[in-house]
Design a protein around this nucleic acid. Structure first.
Lengths: 338, 338
DNA sequence: CCTATTAGCTAATACGTATGAGCAAACCGC
DNA sequence: GCGGTTTGCTCATACGTATTAGCTAATAGG
């Protein structure tokens, strides 16, 4: 058994098998129904395995103009929601023979990442909410793109029913008898965040309630932001008895702030988050939330992108993925004081 | 302004600038100190930007045998510890002009991922603990590899001082007056896990203590595992008053189990985790833990790998990264019952 | 048995870049 | 002003694969 100092190429395999290089290419990569005699095919395959041949994807990509790689751009890897999306996407991608190039947009701008990905000739790019807004069609050229959770964009999109998520949260709190309900979320955010807020406000309005403007607090969509927002709410004279948080990180921050301030949850304050990340089950009390199927969204985005690449068709699956209320321990009936 | 239907190549730029293709290559990619007249250089650069030229990394890689891409293989993306490692690595990689191909080893086996990465000619691979064990030198060929947190391997390694982490945890609990101390961790695990356990046991021994074998519970290194392990400990007649958990996920599971069982933490049970993932600050009470510098480990692994690639030298930085006790709210003096 | 067809392979080339060899012009010292 | 050096560029080619066109031998058709 020889130790090949250099990676074996199709030429090496050809020499080993006593055929020409194109024949090797035909056997090993071309349509499996290519017209090659069975005996030849076997010889080639044996020679290839003997030499440990492994195709050079760069060379292949150069001529086919395909890299069998997908780019995934997320705004923040530390947000577990996105790692779930990535995880779902990667599973599908790998099964279909694609590699995944991951970009955390915190480092450089999303546009820079997209440029880098295009340079590597990725066959397509999955852009997660928050990364998509900035980009113009111009900057991605003719690269295939699927956007997650930003349905306003001009690309095919996979999104959850964010408005319904907000409504569900609002209705739950109303049914529990709450009348003074707050909202914590960022001022300018993704389409998804805006729709969650909108659905929530709609649910209140349908019940004949309104939300006081100072109960609608603008905070960053993070644990720290949620904590700050809840502190502010608790210090108000007309403090709310319940709060819908734009995502679970904010909800967890809000919960922490309540506990630190000695406000029992859910007895004195009901909190509803959104996403259902693993942390929601880990905090005590466990966070009531609206589940967004992150992993499935990632998987669906990858499937959509791949079918777009391979069949050159854009199914544009515009159906919104359903969301689901997960009642846990941070919600309870409103405490009637008097 | 013309709309280039096709990606601009160096040939297009050359035509636009009235020079030859190699000149363009010299200006745009070769050593910046290449001998090109200033005027020519300017013309080329202008032509390139006019055409929106973007280098084709595949073609470049084909001739330079470099892809400017690094592979990162992690055992489980859902463990926040690894996303921190990835995050640190990615930051360094992107700054140095490398892209990052991410592989979650849960899907296929680590070896399959490595094969796929090699086919894409990644310049190097970062293997995280748990993925490394299975691989032989053979299967990675001459690809550069850096291993994170598995110092036993034959590749250059970046690792934290796991043994010291265990000792620190042990000493803390001893100083707090605990005498019956348990350990929760997996039976067969990474080198890091084994060393944490070993350091912990050593600390006990130095204080003249031993750990009863039934207080050394083998559980999966997850939240669920930690919860199960703590349930078992609590049901024992000689239940411990403190517990060191092999990582924060286990610690958080243990904490949850205590709270569910009505055992107050830290009054009746002290818990120490390891890693210091964000969740540790989020649970209530906040988890005392030993901080492992995950992000820095990722960054260092990337730097090590890149220097190995570019200078063809392997600094083998074998120094272990320091760990640090983070005392929070899950540890307290042992309760003297009688 | 001769021709039209097809099966099975190979020769040639393209993909877009980098790079060593080579060539013309400018420049230098004396 | 002449040999030698340096500057600034281009020619040719290689990287490893896929693919089109074409060639030979076998096969079918009559």
């Amino acid at each position: 058994m020889s130790k090949p100092r250099r990676r074996a190429t199709t030429h090496d395999v050809a020499a080993e098998a006593g055929v020409s290089q194109p024949t090797v290419s035909l056997v090993l990569s071309g349509n499996p129904r290519a017209r090659v005699a069975a005996a030849t095919r076997r010889r080639v395959i044996e020679a290839a395995s003997r030499l440990g041949y492994q195709p050079n994807m760069l060379a292949r990509g150069l001529v086919t103009r395909r890299s069998y790689a997908l780019g995934v751009v997320v705004p923040d890897l530390d947000n577990p929601f996105f790692t779930e999306v990535v995880s779902g996407a990667q599973r599908v991608a790998v099964d279909a023979g694609y590699a995944v190039l991951l970009c955390d947009a915190r480092g450089a701008s999303a546009a820079d990442h997209v440029t880098a990905l295009r340079g590597r000739l990725v066959d397509g790019i999955i852009l997660d909410a928050g990364s998509a807004g900035i980009l113009s069609l111009q900057s991605v050229g003719d690269t295939n793109v699927v956007v997650v959770d930003e349905p306003a964009s001009s690309w095919p999109t996979v999104a959850s029913d964010a408005r319904e998520a907000g409504r569900i949260a609002g209705r739950l709190l109303i049914e529990l008898g709450h009348r003074t309900i707050a909202f914590l979320g960022p001022a300018i955010g993704t389409h998804t965040f805006r729709m969650r807020e909108r659905g929530f406000v709609e649910a209140l309005r349908e019940a004949g309630l309104t939300i006081d403007s100072h109960h609608l607090r603008r905070v960053p969509a993070s644990v720290a932001g949620g904590a700050r927002g809840m502190q502010a709410l608790l210090s108000m004279e007309d403090a709310p008895t319940a709060c819908f948080c734009v995502n679970d990180l904010v909800g967890i921050g809000a919960l922490k702030a309540c506990l630190s301030a000695g406000v029992p949850v859910p007895e004195r304050m009901s909190i509803v988050g959104c996403d259902d990340i693993e942390m929601a089950r880990i905090v005590t009390p466990e966070l009531t939330t609206v589940r967004i199927p992150a992993r499935e969204m990632g998987a669906r985005a990858a499937r959509l992108l791949i079918s777009q690449i391979e069949q050159d068709s854009a199914p544009r699956s515009d159906r919104l993925l359903p969301v689901k209320l997960i009642e846990r321990q941070t919600t309870a009936h409103a405490f009637t004081d008097a």
